[in-house]
Amino acid sequence: MRILIVITLIFCTTLVHGQDEKVNWLDFEQLEEALKKQPKKVMVYFYADWCAYCKKMDRSVFTKQDVIALLNDNYYTIKFNVESNDTIQFGGKTFTNKQFGKKRNPIHQIPEYLASRQNAEIELPATIILNEDFEIKKRFYRYISPTEMLSILKQN
């Protein structure tokens, strides 16, 4: 009987622990240090607090254990609010939000740099996939379902 209780406790602890796993989001400064130590693919996720599809991705994609495991094992991940007012040092350059306070929805320079398109504004959510050399491989400007996200991450 005691063995059955111990096995049940171990099983339940493993289930609860597995459900607590989260995406290991980094900031750009942490990313720069990590890339120096060990090159790895990068996924950058740009969002805004007002973006309904961004909130949907947070709830339905970045909470799935298979997505979390794939991201944490194979990618460095950045989650960045496009309206941030933070000053960021990355790649020997300084990035700011020069529009902050001047425009209703000010866009930071980092998403403008990584997610910009010719003759089109940034659409959210924006997901950028980069290779180990920090070269952009794919850009997505829409909601991505958990199944599609898995497919994208496995392809790159």
Rank of each mutant, 00 (worst) to 15 (best):
Y141F: 13
H108E: 02
Y141V: 00
I122E: 02
N119L: 14
I129L: 15
Y113F: 15
T127R: 15
L153Y: 01
L130D: 08
I136K: 14
P106M: 07
Q109G: 05
R139Q: 05
Q109Y: 06
R142F: 03
S116C: 11
K138Q: 12
N119G: 08
I122R: 14
F140I: 02
D133W: 07
I129M: 15
A115C: 05
R142D: 08
K137A: 04
S145P: 01
N131P: 10
M149H: 11
S145Y: 03
E148L: 12
F134V: 02
F134P: 09
T127F: 13
L150C: 08
E123K: 15
Y113E: 03
S151L: 14
A120W: 11
Y143V: 00
L124Y: 15
I128A: 07
I128E: 04
R139K: 13
T127C: 10
Y113A: 02
E148C: 10
K138A: 05
A126G: 00
E121D: 07
R117K: 11
I152Q: 05
Y141K: 14
R117Q: 11
M149K: 12
M149D: 04
E123D: 07
L114D: 00
Y113C: 01
K138H: 14
L130I: 05
T147F: 15
P146G: 02
Y143G: 00
P111V: 01
R139A: 05
A120F: 15
E132M: 13
S151N: 11
I110G: 09
R142I: 00
I152D: 02
K138F: 05
T127H: 13
E121G: 08
I107S: 06
Y141T: 00
L150S: 08
Q118S: 10
K138M: 09
L114R: 11
F140H: 12
I128Y: 12
L124F: 11
L130C: 10
E148A: 14
E112S: 12
P111E: 02
S116A: 14
F140P: 06
F140D: 04
Y143I: 00
L150R: 14
S116D: 09
H108N: 08
L153A: 01
I129G: 07
L124H: 06
R117S: 10
N131S: 09
T127V: 08
I136E: 07
I110L: 11
R139E: 06
I152N: 06
